[in-house]
Design a protein around this nucleic acid. Structure first.
Lengths: 199, 199
DNA sequence: CGCAAAGTCTGCACTGAGTGCAAGCTTGAA
DNA sequence: TTCAAGCTTGCACTCAGTGCAGACTTTGCG
């Protein structure tokens, strides 16, 4: 899609971004996010405090960097998939759960941090909402359903992912994938087996 | 449940809380939330800046006060309802959408504000998450389903409410209730009509 | 190469959110 | 009345986030 070779500047920028994000996570794990200042993150990443804010608009952004993002290409594959919508969705979430170690470990660490630091929850939820929006756009692009339904589907999928992720972290489900499947199964039985007052 | 008559102190506290919340909303509507300082909210409410923080831990809390809360008694009625789970859920959301004017107007104004001020979104999402958690507890208390399913149901219901609320605000749905119904319908057709790879 | 435009890094000074403390005042119960 | 508990406030402090201006680096181009 975009094949301009990355310039020196771009490479440096990416390196620094990663360094800052890593510094933020490390410090947060070491002593808790509320015991970490921007100055310290900047110092550990080898930049000035002011430069920190050239890379991330807020302290939280550095911590959440890439944590709740779709892996590159995943949404495009989803859009292009010939499988029926629900199957394609499942494939998408499976692929997402099977990320390579570094990204995935980071996501897990961040979620654990949020678990112990409620101030972080709003920021995390906002990231999740952003990725739901991206998913909604991809669903719309597939053309299976109208936009309203696409938004609904994306929101529900996000909700299921949140629930299954949470209960996997809490240890009540063996692994993220079966947790996700359990959530979808719960939804399906609920929708299909309940007596409806107005059929 | 709790019938100790409210003391003078309690009444005062409630009054001040309401006054501060009202001041926050009014100022936000007048000039945008980012153009409002805590000092100004405090002054309009007739208290000192320091006292503001005795009532609300953050500036945002004052704005969101009561905006995304279940109306009193609604969850209890839901828990006690003999109707099947999905019907009881629908009743709950209908009742919620039919709140009396003041509360409801406040909620709508807050949502409009959030729409124009992305900084507010995280806080709003956190409030919604909190009310989902309350709902999950109520679903569990009904005893229809296990706790994992209860969480799933609550998360999905919240997602649907969010989508339908949003698109109602955006004008693509006539009223909140039919919007909610449309979302549930979209979900049901999706779940029941799609070919499954693994039946 | 050499040079100008564009982009980057940094220090400085400022606004505003949020907190701990201590002193003074109000309420509620005996 | 008297005293404890709770409420309000001012003050001083930390830290996130921003605008600005000057120094430096990269890049594209003649």
């Amino acid at each position: 899609m975009n094949d301009t070779p990355p310039s020196l500047r771009d490479r440096r920028r990416a390196e620094t971004t990663a360094a800052v994000a890593a510094a933020a996570l490390d410090l947060a794990v070491e002593r808790g996010w509320d015991q970490v200042t921007v100055d310290e993150v900047a110092e550990r990443a080898g930049i000035s405090r002011r430069t920190f804010f050239n890379y991330f608009a807020t302290k939280d952004e550095a911590l959440f960097h890439d944590a709740m993002a779709w892996r590159p290409g995943a949404l495009e594959a989803f859009t292009a998939s010939p499988a029926p919508l629900l199957d394609a969705l499942e494939d998408l979430f499976v692929a997402q759960a099977d990320r390579e170690a570094p990204d995935r470990d980071r996501a897990v660490q961040v979620m654990r941090l949020v678990d112990g630091a409620p101030e972080l929850l709003p920021g995390l939820l906002a990231r999740i909402a952003a990725s739901e929006e991206a998913l909604a756009a991809a669903v719309t692009a597939r053309g299976d359903v109208d936009e309203f339904t696409a938004r609904t589907v994306a929101a529900v999928a996000g909700a299921l992912a949140r629930v299954s992720g949470t209960s996997w972290l809490a240890g009540s489900q063996p692994d993220p994938l079966s947790s996700t499947r359990a959530a979808w199964a719960a939804l399906r039985t609920l929708v299909t087996t309940t007596d409806r007052r107005t059929p």
